[in-house]
Amino acid sequence: MKAVKRYFPIFVMPTLIAFLIAFAVPFCLGLFLSFTEFRTVTDARFVGLENYIKIFTSDETFLNSLWFTVKFAVTTVVTINLFAFLLALLLTRNIFGTRLFRTVFFMPNLIGGIVLGYIWQLIINGVLFRFNYSITSDAQFGFWGLVILMNWQMIGYMMIIYIAGLSNVSTDVLEAAKVDGAGALTTLFKVTIPSVMPSITICLFLTITNAFKLFDQNLALTAGAPGGRTRMMALDIYETFYGSTGAEGIGQAKSVIFFLLVAAVSLTQLMLTRRKEVES
C-alpha cells in the first residue's frame, strides 16, 4: 500500500484542513480562552480559574439553566423512549396500515427546530389563551411545552430504531418462550427487552445528548422567557456570549463545563448499557 500513501494530499488533505479550521483549532483556542478575559480573541489576558469561579459565585443563570436542563433531559428521555418503544411494539404486529403509521410518526423529525418551536408556540398559546395565560407567563408552561415538542419530534425517530431492533429478535426464541409457557409480560421483559438492548443503548444516547444540547427549539418556543427561567444550557451560553459584551471569557468557561458534562453523562450511559448488552 506504498502507492496509496503517496496520495495523502488527495485523500486526506481536504478533510484534514476542514477539520482543523472548523473544529480542532477552535476547540483548542476555546479551551485556552476559557482561562482568559477577552473581547476579540487577540486581546486575551490570562486570568487563571477566575472565569470558572465566577460561574458558580456571581452568575445565577448558569446553575438555573443546568437544573432546568437536567429536569428536561430526565423527563424527555423517559417519555420519548417509553412511547417510542410502545409504538414500535404495536407496529411490529402486522396490523393493517403499519407502513402508513410509521411514515406519519416519523415525519415531525424532519422539520427543523426553529419551525417546530413556532408551530408549538401557536398551539400552546392557543390553548393557554382561553385561560388568559401565554407560554411565557410561567416557567412551568415553557417546560412542559418543550417536553411535548421534543416528544412530538423524537418519538418517531426512536421508534424506527426500536422497530429495527425488534425485527431482529429471533422468532425461534419467542416460540421457545411460548412453548415454555411464558406469558406476554414475561416474554417482553425476559426475552424481547434483553435482545433489543443495542437499540436501547443507541436511543438513550441520542435522546440524552439531544436533550442536553437542545437550542433551536428553546430559542423559538420561549427564548428563555419568563426572565430566563426556561433557558437551557446551550441558550444560556449563547446569551452569555452574544446577549451582552464583556462576559466572553465566562461564556467560554461555561461551554467547557457544558462539554465536560455532556461527555461525562453520555459516556457513562454508553458504558452502563453496553455492559447490559454483553450480559444478555
Binding site: F19, I21, A22, F23, A24, V25, P26, F27, L29, G30, L33, T40, V41, T209, F212, K213, F215, M233, A234, I237, Y238, F241, E248, G251, Q252, S255, V256, F258, F259, V262, A263, S266, L267
Partner: peptide, 16 residues
C-alpha cells in the same frame, strides 16, 4: 469531535 457540543467551538469557530 462527535461528542463535543457546538457551543464549545461556537465563538472561536465563527471568528476563525
Amino acid at each position: 469531535s462527535m461528542i463535543v457540543p457546538f457551543q464549545m467551538v461556537m465563538f472561536t469557530m465563527s471568528k476563525t
